[in-house]
């Protein structure tokens, strides 16, 4: 697959502001964060969840639990993928029973990743509720799934690709839109 970068949607500052706003919205919607925990979906949801937890701590002065979810074992497309994905650990080292969970991912697209993540979470326990936070919502849902907190809505075509970069994994922050010119 050959990709050509079309334009940047968010820079470092833009990402920071979006995450700060989402942090405020999470606090507001849950009337505080006493019982709130954030769980990022591997891979880029992980660092984003960490950052949200730090912002929330800055604002409320409360450290909330952070987890990372690996959804490989729950994917619905394993048999159709050309390459078998590697399984990594799920690192949720707190009891999710009765917690108000905020699931965090970089891009919301078909909704299938979130569907897998919901199944994975339910196997870990019975949270009071699960909310969804994403940095980018690019549309084209194939399942009845909707985000509670959105950094930015970006209308896209299926011929495009959204790439989110995070410092922890990519050495830089930012979001770009790419065009698939050869698949």
């Amino acid at each position: 697959m050959v990709l050509r970068e079309k334009h940047a949607i968010m820079d470092e500052m833009g990402m920071k502001r979006a995450l700060t706003r989402i942090a405020h919205e999470i606090i507001e919607k849950n009337k505080g964060v006493d019982n709130v925990a954030v769980i990022g979906i591997r891979r880029r949801g992980g660092p984003l969840a960490q950052r949200l937890a730090l912002r929330i701590e800055d604002i409320e002065g409360i450290k909330i639990p952070v987890g990372i979810l690996d959804i490989t074992l729950y994917r619905d497309d394993l048999t159709t993928l050309a390459q078998q994905p590697q399984v990594h650990r799920t690192e949720v080292n707190f009891d999710i029973n009765g917690k108000r969970l905020v699931l965090v991912d970089d891009v919301l697209y078909t909704g299938r990743t979130v569907r897998a993540a919901l199944d994975a979470l339910i196997d870990l326990g019975r949270p009071e509720c699960i909310q969804l936070a994403v940095l980018i919502d690019r549309g084209h849902r194939e399942l009845p799934i909707k985000a509670d907190f959105i950094g930015k809505n970006v209308p896209t075509s299926r011929q495009e690709n959204i790439e989110v970069y995070v410092k922890e994994l990519d050495g830089k922050d930012g979001v770009v839109i790419q065009e698939i010119i050869d698949s």
């Binding site: 690996d70 490989t72 074992l73 729950y74 394993l78 590697q86 399984v87 990594h88 650990r89 799920t90 199944d119 196997d123 870990l124 326990g125």
Partner: peptide, 23 residues
Amino acid sequence: ELILNTAIPMKDVICRDIKKVPT
């Protein structure tokens, strides 16, 4: 190494209350 590394998340699964994944 791939087999040994893949067994780590698998061990997590069997140490949970719900020891089943739909894979």
